[in-house]
Design a binder for these strands. Structure first.
Length: 104
DNA sequence: TCATTGGCTATCA
DNA sequence: CTGATAGCCAATG
């Protein structure tokens, strides 16, 4: 099982109206330092329509990148029920955690 | 060679 | 300054 497949599976499991971050995906994959690899995998996007990559954003609440453009990403997320304030998402309300780690 | 990992830089809030 | 990151590059398996 490649990291690529793991990441893709995880992203597919994100429910509608929720979002996650590159960090969280890398963490769930067991490689918290390899968020770059995750980003590269999504950027290379083996199946752009099959994978809801628009639900993957930055930890700061920014949208990050998107194959169809960040504007499209914002529109899509709004339609799914995610409130966006000037390109930013409420992580406390919409963040989806694959696993629960040490809370600070 | 290819896929994945880890280090470093620049940019933004 | 701090933290984060859909980048780039080199090393590893």
């Amino acid at each position: 099982m490649s990291l690529k497949e793991t990441v893709l599976e995880l992203v597919r499991k994100i429910p509608v109206g929720k979002v996650t971050t590159y960090k969280e995906i890398a963490l769930a994959a067991g490689k918290p330092n390899s968020w770059r690899a995750v980003a590269k995998i999504l950027a290379n996007n083996p199946a752009p329509i099959f994978i809801p990559c628009h639900r993957v954003i930055k930890s700061s609440g920014h949208l990050g990148g998107y194959v169809f453009g960040t504007e499209k990403k914002e529109e899509l997320l709004r339609k799914e029920g995610v409130e966006i304030s000037k390109g930013r998402v409420d992580l406390k309300r919409y963040m989806f955690y694959f696993k629960i780690h040490r809370r600070r």
